[in-house]
Amino acid sequence: MGKKRLTMRRKESIYGYIFVMPWIIGFLAFTAGPLVFSFMASFTNYNITSQMDFVGVDNYQGLFTEDSLFWTSLWNTLYFVAFSVPLTTIGAILLSALLNQDIPGIRFFRTLYYLPAVLSGVGVYLLWMQLLDPGTGMVNLILSWFNIDGPSWLFDPDWTKPSLILMKMWSVGGSMLLYLASMQGVSKSLYEAAEIDGANTWKQFRHITIPMITPVIFFDVVTSLIGGFQIFQEAYVMSSNGEGGPANSLLFYNLYMWRQAFENFNMGYAMAMSWILFVIVFVLTLINLKLAPRWVHYEGEEK
């Protein structure tokens, strides 16, 4: 009897491995190799085509001690992440709470707010460049109706990153969908019980909805944090000549790394940059995972 159960378990684990095999093969073939290679090459002066000499920690040392643009790009990226992640998360939660109401035509609104998530990439950036145009853009036109003299957005270094954050807020539809789905899964009986106890809507939201969707919030925060650090295209498309201007205010980490690798051909240096970013993101994700048990609530979890 015991023997049979063991083979059953063994069988199951074999099935498990078969199911994850595509990922493992893909990882070994396409990710692990380049990963190891980039780590090795970050200690060389690799230039892609003709040289690869060991230079010790010169690249890392140069980045930390001599390269002012490295610090600029890191600061810009941290600024962007620090604002965009909480704001888009809160925005998506509030929006999905609104769209979780039972009113006629709600499907229409859901579609409408999800639409920006369907549109993607360069087209959206070009659209926003027009919307944010200081002279003729619609954003400043609307602001002027309220007697607000709108800023120069993408032309003013103090406003470029807020411009991108605003654009990100507009396209929260993707994560909104996740929140909405999980809100719909919250049992109605919880709300009914709370109502009987006299809890108002805000209290219901605060003490029922939010705790019940914390697993999704956790997922969203982790993925958008990682995504935020990888911001590249927005700056490449929305600054003139893809330089990350004005005044280097859109010079994000990945943009600078790309420039070092493919314009200056300092691939070893760029690889060192990528490892520094990896460590930063890795540590932040670890912190996230460590903090998670304190606030993430899984239903049916043993305490």
Binding site: L28, A29, A32, G33, P34, V36, F37, M40, A41, Y46, I48, M52
Partner: peptide, 13 residues
């Protein structure tokens, strides 16, 4: 090590 990394990645540097 780099040689093996290269072989692994299938990317000739």
């Amino acid at each position: 090590l780099m040689g093996s990394a290269l072989a692994l990645s299938g990317c000739a540097g």
